[in-house]
Design a protein around this nucleic acid. Structure first.
Lengths: 119, 119
DNA sequence: CGCTTGACTTGGAGTTACTCCAAGCTGCTA
DNA sequence: TAGCAGCTTGGAGTAACTCCAAGTCAAGCG
């Protein structure tokens, strides 16, 4: 599978994929005879995970570190768990912000629809 | 109220406050005799709304446009409603992404805790 | 009174995480 | 055999901050 299709499947843009490879968040992707990237099923699974994490705001540094741990041979389970759990906590915060904002929007829209003004 | 306290109340950093004023997302803030910004209750309300919108990913352009509408004298209610509603839709999408990611994290953590490996 | 401290001012450089672009190569189709 | 889509690279551009240097100002202390 080449970059365009991999991009469609994973949700990462071709530019982002190349960028992640350069930064070491993706492993070095195999190339065909003409030098074009060919993505394996394994690559795609990893990319889908990355897409999920970045869309919900995990910083590059953490993704980078997590990738490093996964690709190392040592037993790094506990640090990996730490990273994932800290992201879980971040999601919890985000959910709260989201709910606050939803409530505020609902309130403001209510006002606009009945009365007319109030920024 | 000066910038530091306004920052604590609103959740926007002093730098962000200055940046938003420069960009016109905040109105020109009043100054005291020595040139320091003094924030009114009205300023603070507006800043809290901005903080809420930006934390949930409304782009500057939309915040800018909304600010412009609020500070204009014309009746701009319908465009304001459009902006807020499109943000509501964005929040809906974000909620879904968040839930996907939460499920994935839960699954991965489950695996780490029982078996040990699988990125 | 002078001195220090802390909070502020400005303009501008630096950062993160992309995103876009130009110039050139490859492989299929008409 | 030319044309076109899709890829390659290095590098420039962007959004939205974030940090920094150099300087101002007001309050408090001895």
């Amino acid at each position: 599978m080449r970059i365009k299709q991999a991009s469609e499947v994973s949700g990462l843009s071709p530019d982002t994929i190349r960028y992640y490879e350069k930064e070491g968040i993706l492993p070095t992707i195999a190339r065909d005879l003409s030098g074009q990237r060919t993505f394996s099923k394994d690559n795609l699974n990893w990319m889908e995970l990355l897409q999920c994490l970045r869309q919900t705001g995990m910083p590059m540094k953490d993704m980078s570190r997590y990738a490093q741990l996964v690709h190392s041979d040592d037993n790094t389970t506990s640090e990996r768990i730490d990273i994932l759990k800290s992201h879980q906590a971040r999601l919890e915060d985000k959910r709260k912000e989201l709910e606050n904002c939803e409530a505020l929007l609902k309130y403001k829209l209510g006002i606009y629809e009945t009365k007319g003004d109030l920024h």
